[in-house]
Structures are given as structure tokens and as C-alpha cells.
Design a protein around this nucleic acid. Structure first.
Length: 412
RNA sequence: CGGGGAUUGGCGCAAUUGGCUAGCGUGCAUGGUUUGGGACCAUGAGGUUGCAGGUUCGAAUCCUGUAUCCCCGACCA
């Protein structure tokens, strides 16, 4: 991609209502643009990052047998009356044709349960796990912190259906592992901890995945020995580490980036979702749900991986792998060589953003490269060519070096 | 949802005891000079001051209503 043609520009100043590091840097870098409070447009750079996060999640869900579907953003209010959740204060209600009462789904148990019921009748059909990656709508009392608490936000939600609790427990552990695989690929595994949270009516605990960072909205109590934590809402009833029983818990700030939950039979009961066992007996279906927020995770990553100059993306989700800065492009010879390098990178399927602007000074281009935060910066200029090639620099390192043209590819 | 603050070219800001053609920076356009850490000069475009009413000879400035945004708190499978 040529920077000169990229939709979405970086800027030196940022809208005064950007209220957090992630809102500021993502807006300034041309990744997102606020539409209304808690609702954002994703520009090409931002969408590339979001899509990469989604694809990592997608791959890990597929690995554990998740089957991707896509459910609608809206449904009838009737389903929410059935489960008794129609008065949740975050529900967006509106009217459809014929005065029908509709809601924008803040989560999809009310959709997926009746849907699964149409296809799963027998123990032979179970277990099944389906997931989607889709936007959720929650009318938060107070949207804030950029992508961290929005009214429309991106979510991966996986739902599993089982013959009994034992099988639910088995799969629950599998999902837990898959989540840590995801955080590993996002380079968040060192600072993301399993956190015990309230389990609701049918289960003792649910589990959150909390990424420790000083700007986090949540307070958790961390057992440093086990790297397991307890959520604020249950610290009153659970004062020791659930893993080792230790009582030395450290208070830390964190952001919830995932939540897995044994729903048990709460929704299958509401919708009368039964299956026939091997003896022809009718049995209730056991359910689990597993949420992961790609957009919130994107915001969290920016909160953590940044410096005074901008974002420092983990390699796996950077919008581009290489930021190619062309200087002195008014010189036809240099321009030709820069274009050739750009083409060579494209030919090798290396994701590259080429700053091909002619009338922009070196300082401005470097500042933009730092702000956007791609992992590798290459500079081709009069100076670099005189010194034997192309300047190579990693975003997270200070030092740079000049590499001959033919050596560049082995380094990226 | 309770309390507080804000709203002026794309963005950041100034101008209010009511008074001249609403300024400055940045960004944008054109020309020229520059060219390794957000260059410089010149010229130019861009605003019915969130919206709707009201007071007044005169309103960005005062009054009423309303919308939106932000902050603190409550809330948050």
C-alpha cells in the first residue's frame, strides 16, 4: 500500500474528546474515527489490525472444533421475554414493521439456543460448538476509554452444547487452553491472567481473562505464585487463591479481554431445549459460552504497547510488517530504486506500507512511521544508498543499520 | 442514571462588564526555496460561533429550551 493513497491520515493534533491512550493514538494514527460516543469507524489501518486479531481467534476456535456461523444483530424482543432478560438496562429496543418490538443483541444466548434447538435432537448430535465474530450492541450508561468500553463493539462468542455437565467441564478446559494460545499469539500471555469471577446461579465460578495494565478499569487480586487472580466481585467470599490456597494476593489493575462461562441449563430450560439420550429418555442440554472481544483487545494492546512516539504493534497484528520510507524521491534514480524495493517486497508477499510522498520531509515521515507502529522500518535515501543499501530499524529498538539490497530480505 | 464542565473553519485554541470585516496555530491549495527527526517564504480557499427560540439599535458574548461530547460517581455475563 502506498501511503500517498491511503484513506485515513495521521495528524499532529488529536480531537480533544479522545479520552485515553488508545483513543488518542489510534485516532491520531488514522486507525479509527469516532462516530458517536462509544461507536467507532475503522479506517483501513484499523480494520487490518482488527481483522488480524479476529483471524487469530478464528484459527484457534477452529482448532478446538468450533464451527463459525453468523447470527443477526437484531432479534425479536419476545426471545428476551422468554429468558427474562428483556429489561436489561443495556438493551437497545426499537420498533420494526408492524410495530414489532425488536432489540439489538448485546449477546446471543437468546438467538443461539433456539437456533441450536432446530438441529440438535439426539445425544448423537452432541457435543457441538458454534461461534461467530460479530458486533454487539450494549447501551452502556457511560461509554469510555476508546475501544475499551463501547456501545457497539466487536465480539467473538462461542457457544457449546453437551449431554451432561461432565462433558461441559471437559470442553470448558479445552477452551481455556485455546484462549491462552490466543493471548500468546497476541504477545499478551505474560500479563494476562485467569481470573475467578462470579458464576451466577448454576456454577460456582466463571473465568475472566484479565490483562494487567495500569490503565485497566478493573481491580483484581493476583496470587503471584500461581498467576491466578480473583475478581473484585467475589473477593468478599473468596479471600484465598483458588489454586494454592495462598492468602498473599496483590491488588493490580487490569482489563477484561475474555470471559468464559458455564451456562449449564439456564437457557436450555428457558427454551425447553432437550435431547434424547441413548435410551430414548429426554434430557436437558448443558451449555457453555465463551466470549472474546477483538476490538477491546485491540485497544488494550495499544494501552500496553506504546511509547512517547506512538504505537508499537506486536508482529502478529501490525497493520503492515514493513514500513518503507522513501526519502529524496525527487531524485529519479532514488525513486526508481525505492519503487523496485517496494515491488520486490510485494512480490515476496511481505506486507508493506510505502511512504512514497515526495513533498514531505524526513522528520515528518519518521514521526508517522513511529506513530503507526509497524515492526520494521526500512529507509531508502541518498544517504542510505551512498552507505551501501537500505537502513533497517525495528520499531522497538533504537539502533539502525545499513544493509545491502540483497541482504534485506533475510532480515524481515 | 445522579452531579459537574464543555461546544467558535478538518484538528488544536483565542476573542464575553454585549460593539469595527470573529483572530492565531496546524492542516488544505498554488508558486518558489529546502531535503535524515514533524522545514521556510509568498499568495489563497475554508466560519450563518452545536441547534431552536428570545432580549437588544447591536449577540460568539445575556436569557430559555434542546442536542451532543467529556469528567466524577453508580452500573457492568
Amino acid at each position: 500500500m502506498r501511503y500517498s493513497q491511503l484513506f485515513g491520515k495521521t495528524s499532529k493534533t488529536v480531537a480533544s474528546d479522545a479520552d485515553s491512550i488508545n483513543a488518542k493514538l489510534l485516532t491520531q494514527g488514522g486507525f479509527i474515527q469516532k462516530e458517536i460516543s462509544g461507536v467507532y469507524n475503522y479506517l483501513p489501518l484499523g480494520l487490518r489490525v482488527l481483522t488480524k486479531i479476529q483471524n487469530i481467534v478464528r484459527e484457534e476456535m477452529d482448532k478446538i472444533g468450533g464451527q463459525e456461523i453468523l447470527m443477526p444483530a437484531m432479534t425479536q424482543n419476545e426471545s428476551w421475554i422468554t429468558t427474562g432478560r428483556n429489561n436489561m438496562d443495556v438493551l437497545f429496543h426499537f420498533k420494526g414493521q408492524g410495530d414489532t418490538d425488536l432489540v439489538l443483541n448485546p449477546t446471543h444466548e437468546e438467538v443461539v439456543t433456539p437456533l441450536a434447538q432446530k438441529y440438535l435432537f439426539s445425544y448423537r448430535d452432541l457435543p457441538v460448538a458454534v461461534y461467530q465474530i460479530q458486533n454487539k450492541f450494549r447501551n452502556e450508561a457511560r461509554a469510555k476509554s476508546g475501544l475499551l468500553r463501547g456501545r457497539e463493539f466487536n465480539m467473538k462468542d462461542l457457544y457449546s452444547f453437551h449431554v451432561d455437565e461432565e462433558d461441559l467441564n471437559r470442553y470448558y478446559e479445552i477452551v481455556k487452553k485455546a484462549y491462552f494460545e490466543i493471548y500468546k499469539r497476541l504477545e499478551l500471555d505474560d500479563i494476562t491472567v485467569l481470573t475467578f469471577a462470579s458464576g451466577g446461579a448454576f456454577s460456582q465460578f466463571s473465568h475472566e481473562f484479565q490483562t494487567i495494565n495500569e490503565n485497566g478499569e478493573d481491580t483484581i487480586y493476583l496470587c503471584e505464585k500461581c498467576k491466578i487472580a480473583i475478581n473484585k466481585e467475589i473477593i468478599d467470599t473468596q479471600k484465598t487463591c483458588p489454586e494454592c490456597g495462598g492468602d498473599k494476593l496483590k491488588t493490580v489493575k487490569a482489563t477484561e479481554v475474555g470471559n468464559i462461562f458455564k451456562l449449564r441449563t439456564k437457557f436450555s430450560k428457558a427454551f425447553n431445549f432437550y435431547y434424547s439420550d441413548s435410551k430414548g429418555q429426554e434430557k436437558i442440554v448443558e451449555m457453555g459460552c465463551y466470549g472474546f472481544g477483538p476490538s477491546r483487545t485491540m485497544g488494550t494492546i495499544v494501552e500496553i504497547f506504546n511509547d512517547s512516539k506512538g504505537i508499537i504493534w506486536p508482529k502478529s497484528i501490525a497493520p503492515y510488517h514493513v514500513h518503507l520510507v522513501g526519502l529524496d524521491l525527487f531524485d529519479e534514480n532514488i525513486k526508481t530504486q525505492a519503487e523496485k524495493i517496494y515491488q520486490d517486497l510485494l512480490d515476496k508477499n511481505i506486507e508493506v506500507l510505502f511512504d512514497d510522498r515526495v513533498d514531505v520531509t524526513a522528520g515528518a515521515k519518521f514521526a508517522d512511521a513511529d506513530l503507526v507502529g509497524n515492526p520494521i522500518r526500512l529507509v531508502i535515501s541518498k544517504r542510505s544508498l551512498e552507505n551501501g543499501g537500505i537502513e533497517f530499524k525495528k520499531r522497538n529498538e533504537e539502533k539502525s543499520e545499513i544493509l545491502p539490497l540483497d541482504k534485506i530480505f533475510s532480515r524481515i
